[in-house]
Amino acid sequence: MTEINSFKKGLKDGLPICIGYFSVAFAFGIFATENGLTVFQATILSLTNLTSAGQLAAVPIITGGGSLAELALSQIVINSRYSLMSVSLSQKFSPDVKLKDKLYISYANTDEIFAVSISQKGEIGKKYMLGLMIPPMVGWTTGTLAGALAGNILPAMVTAALGLAIYGMFIAIVVPVAKKEKATALCVFISVVLSCVFRYVPLLNKVPSGFTVIICAVVSAGILALVAPVKADEEVTENE
């Protein structure tokens, strides 16, 4: 089997991801500072976590003084799909990737980095992975910084409008798949109904936001996994 292990090729393949991440992170930066994080806090959160949905869910928990258990559990559920990707990815590595390399490569296993590396023909080495990781990390972090700074400068009307940007991206991820797969559409429907119940029904609306996301996601995905299991070989495709 051929081995792909060029740092330069990694960088080149990571560049388009970097550009995409910059714009999503820009929206996140605005969201984070609007919700009470400082520019520095928003930026370091992005650098250390590299996860869009996880970070969006975390901001209200953190600024609202939620419990550490709520924060930890919400991240486990929201980021659980990465564990499956990590398993697939580790089987794609050449023998050149040792345990110590996996310790830093796993940090950057995002949906897009996974999708690009898994689609390579042949085994992949650590130099390629390192090259592939760097541009998205830079894009995600600097995008957050730029958005957080812009949030403080732009007119209120514009930042209010930009408040919808990150949800717009989530909609752009979910809707095309829900359009194609009936089961996913049903999953989305159940999740949304539950989410509204937890927002508007008295007493239930006292449940902290992090737990709400966990309950909605686990229940709806659990039901669909029982009634409409996917074929084993479909496994993980690009999600975000």
């Binding site: 989530f170 999953c187 989305v188 989410s195 996601a217 709806s220 995905a221 996994a225 999600n239």
Partner: peptide, 11 residues
């Protein structure tokens, strides 16, 4: 794990 991302994002 296939359904989780869509469930999370929609909620």
């Amino acid at each position: 794990l296939h359904y989780i991302p869509y469930a999370v994002l929609s909620a």
